[in-house]
């Protein structure tokens, strides 16, 4: 894992000095190729590379799964169909049958993009793109911004009623409206930070444990090693759950923009 390699690297770098714990080392982004487009930095870094690898895996998973398109599905095809129906059901449940179908491709892609980015971090020597707050933040702001624009597009200025809670005395309005606006503005922050923090925390925990695996004497080092084995399983689970939460909240926001509460 990167975690091992980073631990080894930090040890190698300070072979003479005391080994120093640096669990955030493997979140560092390194540019491989410096590129720029109209003054905009479009360099290719390890984060970008692993994003592509994750996308490639997602695409391969689906194309391999539906290859042949047998009426009696094999294992991979069953898995692909299950994954497809899972997202379809989620979209149709929350957004509604008709609008859910309309937004389904975006939600589907978002779910598998996030899921494969989450899981790619568990491969040895890899990088987790979703552990970068800027990436989750980009997605979260695009989603919430899109929901806002879509809400105004659908309802015109009536969409402003969204920020006025119903069934509240008029006297409380000056208090409630700012709270609603703040909670709306907090949406992209909480959405991005939730995913980023989950991914970062899990991998940091693994890095700390690997540090002890490498530095403790052999009679004690099996303990953190066993923990990392268990925790890798937990990380897979968390990767799924966080992708699910990210997508389900996206559905909820889109639903708010369409149906207004």
């Amino acid at each position: 894992m990167t975690l091992i390699s980073s631990a080894i690297a930090s040890e190698a770098a300070q072979a003479s000095a005391e080994p120093k714990m640096d669990p955030l080392h493997h979140f560092e982004v390194h540019k491989f190729v410096d590129l720029s487009l109209f003054g905009f930095d479009i360099s290719i870094s390890n984060s970008v590379l692993w994003m592509w690898i994750a996308c490639g895996f997602a695409f391969l998973f689906f194309t391999q799964g539906i290859k042949g398109g047998k009426q009696v599905p094999g294992r991979l095809q069953s898995l692909v169909e299950l994954g497809y129906l899972f997202v379809l059901e989620m979209a149709e449940d929350i957004i509604g049958k008709k609008d859910g179908r309309k937004f389904f491709p975006y939600i589907f892609t978002l779910f598998y993009f996030v899921l494969f980015c989450n899981l790619s971090g568990l491969l040895p020597g890899s990088f987790t793109p979703t552990s970068q707050i800027i990436i989750t933040g980009t997605f979260a702001s695009i989603i919430v911004g899109f929901a806002l624009i879509f809400g105004f597009y659908n309802h015109g200025l009536h969409y402003l009623k969204f920020f006025v809670p119903s069934g509240i005395p008029v006297l409380l309005m000056p208090l409630m409206i700012p709270i609603e606006i703040i909670s709306f503005l907090a949406r992209p922050v909480s959405l991005s930070v939730r995913l980023f923090a989950n991914m970062t925390a899990g991998h940091t925990m693994l890095a700390v444990m690997f540090f002890y695996v490498l530095t403790l004497p052999i009679f004690a080092s099996w303990l953190p090693f066993g923990f990392t084995v268990v925790f890798t399983g937990v990380e897979i689970f968390i990767g799924f759950i966080q992708a699910y939460i990210f997508t389900i909240l996206t559905c909820v926001y889109i639903n708010d923009a369409i149906h207004m509460h």
């Binding site: 982004v29 984060s47 970008v48 800027i134 990436i135």
Partner: peptide, 8 residues
């Protein structure tokens, strides 16, 4: 490191 990651 933000710019290129947003773009990509």
């Amino acid at each position: 490191m933000f710019e290129h990651q947003i773009f990509w």
